[in-house]
């Protein structure tokens, strides 16, 4: 037994341990470096092209502003949230409140699998069915529905888990006090779960914001401001600018791509900060009861 506790061996073990932690710290630093490098590139190069006119003029063939793309992105996101939001929240409510353990597990599984469907597959589906077969053309509705399909599973899952965090006894107590089931649902279950549900919606929005693949063949692209028309009118969006204007052989076009990327990153950043704040509120019990 004495040989097991030999000095050389114990030294080797502590060196092994040290090496592992050294490498871990290096990995962490590498990841942080990558985050900073990406943000730095986008901020430095993007800010150079940021003017007031960026927000007030439309894109042209080579450059121009981003007004149409910003408004188009907002329109697509708004429409997709209007479609996926109610369905996702109601679906999540069913899974948290009514579904048995087994069916809830299956439904959860299905929405997890759906979250993994590649966005280009959804884009292809949207193109062949909505744009071509139903004859909607490149349109805001086709784009919004594609985005909604993409974001629905996230909303369902976050709604379900935030409703599940509310103790069932609250609901039962409310019923015992004579509240009708619907009122009890609204006041006792949904109100404390609201920050969580909102978090899910915002996350879904930030996912939709960054998507390109499902939109190329459904929303198309337009150099003009979005009309509120649902059909036959293509819409512009920011991610498209990043993708295509980078391939143009003009500096002005490259600049526009970087500026669009900066706006995207800023929007995602804002959403993440809001989500953080909401999450902190959600986990604070003194806040959720009010």
């Amino acid at each position: 037994m004495a040989t097991v506790l030999h000095k050389g061996r114990s030294a080797r073990r502590s060196i092994q341990s040290g090496v592992l932690w050294g490498v871990s710290i290096l990995a962490l630093l590498l990841v942080l470096f990558l985050v900073v490098d990406i943000l730095w590139l986008v901020v430095v190069k993007g800010a150079a092209g940021l003017h007031v006119t960026t927000f007030s003029t439309d894109t042209t063939g080579i450059a121009g502003g981003l007004q149409n793309a910003i408004l188009g992105t907002l329109q697509l996101i708004l429409f997709s949230a209007l479609i996926a939001g109610p369905i996702g929240i109601l679906g999540g409510a069913y899974m948290a409140l009514f579904a048995g353990a087994r069916s809830a597990r299956i439904l959860r599984f299905v929405s997890d699998v759906m979250a993994g469907v590649p966005s280009i597959v959804i884009g292809y589906f949207g193109y062949t069915v909505m744009v071509e077969h139903w004859g909607w053309g490149f349109s805001s509705l086709a784009g919004a529905i594609s985005l909604a399909m993409l974001t629905l599973p996230y909303i369902v899952r976050t709604t379900e888990s935030s409703l599940r965090q509310v103790p069932k006894s609250y609901y039962e107590g409310a019923l015992a006090l004579g509240l009708s089931p619907t009122t009890a649902l609204r006041t006792v279950l949904f109100r404390p779960a609201l920050p969580g549900i909102l978090t899910g919606m915002l996350l879904a929005v930030s996912i939709g914001l960054g998507e390109t693949a499902p939109l190329i063949y459904t929303a198309g692209w337009s150099n003009f401001n979005p009309t509120m028309q649902l059909f036959k009118n293509p819409v512009g969006y920011l991610t498209y600018v990043v993708w295509t204007y980078l391939n143009e052989p003009y500096d002005a076009a490259h600049q526009l791509a970087y500026t669009a990327a900066l706006l995207l990153v800023l929007l995602v950043l804002c959403l993440h900060i809001v989500v953080r704040v909401l999450q902190r509120q959600g986990t604070d019990p003194s806040q959720t009861r009010s």
């Binding site: 962490l28 990841v31 942080l32 990558l34 985050v35 490098d37 990406i38 590139l41 986008v42 190069k45 930030s206 996912i207 914001l209 960054g210 998507e211 390109t212 693949a213 991610t239 990043v242 993708w243 980078l246 791509a257 970087y258 990327a261 995207l264 990153v265 995602v268 950043l269 959403l271 993440h272 953080r276």
Partner: peptide, 22 residues
């Protein structure tokens, strides 16, 4: 640090493409 790393997951893929090209 954790939120920073989670932010990495939220960056749009076209921005990754942009960064990769540059």
């Amino acid at each position: 640090l954790s939120p920073l790393i989670e932010l990495l997951a939220g960056i749009p893929s076209v921005v990754y493409g942009l960064w990769a090209l540059a």
